[in-house]
Simulated assay, not measured.
Amino acid sequence: MLIVNPFATSTTEAGRDALLHTLSASLRRPEDGAGEMAETKRSGARPQYVDVRVEHTTHRGHAGELAALARAERYDVVVVHGGDGSVNEVVNGLLDPPSVPESGMPSPALAVVPGGSANVFARALGIDPDPLKATGQLVDLLATGQRRRVSLGHTNNRWFLFNAGVGVDAQVVKSIDEQRTAGHRATATRYLWTAVRTFMGAARSKPTLTVTIPGREPLGGAHFAFVSNASPWTYLGTRPIETNPDTSFDSRLGVFASTSMAPIRNLPLARQLLSSKAKPHAKHLLRADDVASVEIRSSEPIDMQMDGEYLGTRTVLEFGCRPAVLEVISPKS
């Protein structure tokens, strides 16, 4: 099944047609007729290629509904063409919620053809950010049977792929959403200036967060906290931003929290985050990698985002992770 978000930032009708044509032509069996396309359903050790079933999302949550249908109908692979928000929806449709014991019911493998503005999950897996190049890469990966299993983080009974955060990053996401609603494109420059403006505006705000990691003293007086399931945390154009460079899809969670919003203290930290050999450190910073769980409490409702999607305000969030829970079509490392 191919799930397409036609409203994603970098998708076009021509690009979607090219994607479908490439997949259908490349995955067709030699004996298939010229007009047939390829769809994969679960069958033993290797998939059998038949017709590609294409579904376009029409509303929020629709990608998750389609993914759940693909699982119920025992598809072998679900390809999603959209941004990180669409991929998050698909994953939460493919898998049981974190609070539900594993049922043993198999889930389709996930493949991603980037279609958003950042495409953090796909790029962190080694998928080319260009949709046409990624399509060719996907065909090769399917042909050679390259798959791997990755860990996922979870909170609020929902899976997240690469990051979740409370505070300033969620405020940036909220502002970008409002700007997109007003008709502005979500470019790297817009993200940068929105982040700078939001950070400066929050410089005098009071801290409300307490961050607790098992085996450590709780950190009070934090202004914001990020929880990572992979590295990088995000991208600024082509440049990766790494808050927890030692966190990966094969490890547990990374935590990054700050007790200061003062620009003079955070400018050196910003330079570290942009470094190609990032190892962020500062006296006002908590950074931990490979942690099994983390609890974040706020004395008042605070903005929250997950995989670049604004989810409103929260006062308590408990984060955990589950190893090797999702099968993906990607390079093996």
Score class of each variant (00 low, 15 high):
10 S>D: 09
12 T>Q: 04
13 E>M: 06
14 A>E: 14
15 G>K: 12
19 L>W: 11
21 H>S: 06
33 G>D: 11
35 G>D: 12
35 G>N: 08
37 M>R: 13
40 T>S: 12
43 S>N: 07
46 R>I: 05
51 D>T: 07
51 D>L: 02
57 T>Y: 09
58 T>Q: 12
68 A>W: 07
68 A>T: 08
69 L>V: 10
73 E>P: 11
73 E>W: 11
75 Y>W: 15
80 V>F: 06
80 V>H: 06
85 G>Y: 00
90 V>W: 00
92 N>I: 03
96 D>N: 07
96 D>F: 05
105 M>K: 08
106 P>K: 14
112 V>H: 12
114 P>W: 09
117 S>L: 02
122 A>G: 06
124 A>W: 02
125 L>Y: 11
126 G>V: 11
126 G>D: 10
126 G>I: 10
127 I>Y: 00
128 D>N: 15
130 D>A: 13
133 K>Y: 08
141 L>H: 01
143 A>E: 14
151 S>G: 13
152 L>C: 03
158 R>M: 14
158 R>D: 12
165 G>L: 08
170 A>D: 03
179 Q>F: 15
184 H>K: 10
186 A>V: 04
191 Y>E: 03
194 T>S: 02
198 T>Q: 13
198 T>W: 05
200 M>N: 00
201 G>H: 05
207 P>D: 01
210 T>Q: 05
211 V>R: 06
217 E>Y: 03
219 L>Q: 08
220 G>Q: 05
221 G>L: 08
221 G>D: 07
222 A>N: 03
226 F>V: 15
227 V>D: 14
232 P>N: 09
245 P>H: 06
248 S>D: 07
249 F>M: 03
249 F>N: 02
250 D>K: 08
252 R>Y: 12
260 S>F: 09
264 I>F: 09
270 A>C: 03
272 Q>G: 04
281 H>F: 11
281 H>P: 02
282 A>Q: 13
288 A>Q: 15
290 D>V: 07
291 V>P: 06
294 V>W: 15
295 E>P: 02
297 R>W: 04
300 E>H: 00
302 I>T: 14
307 D>S: 08
308 G>R: 06
311 L>S: 06
313 T>Q: 13
314 R>Y: 08
318 E>A: 09
319 F>W: 05
321 C>D: 05
323 P>E: 05
327 E>T: 15
328 V>C: 11
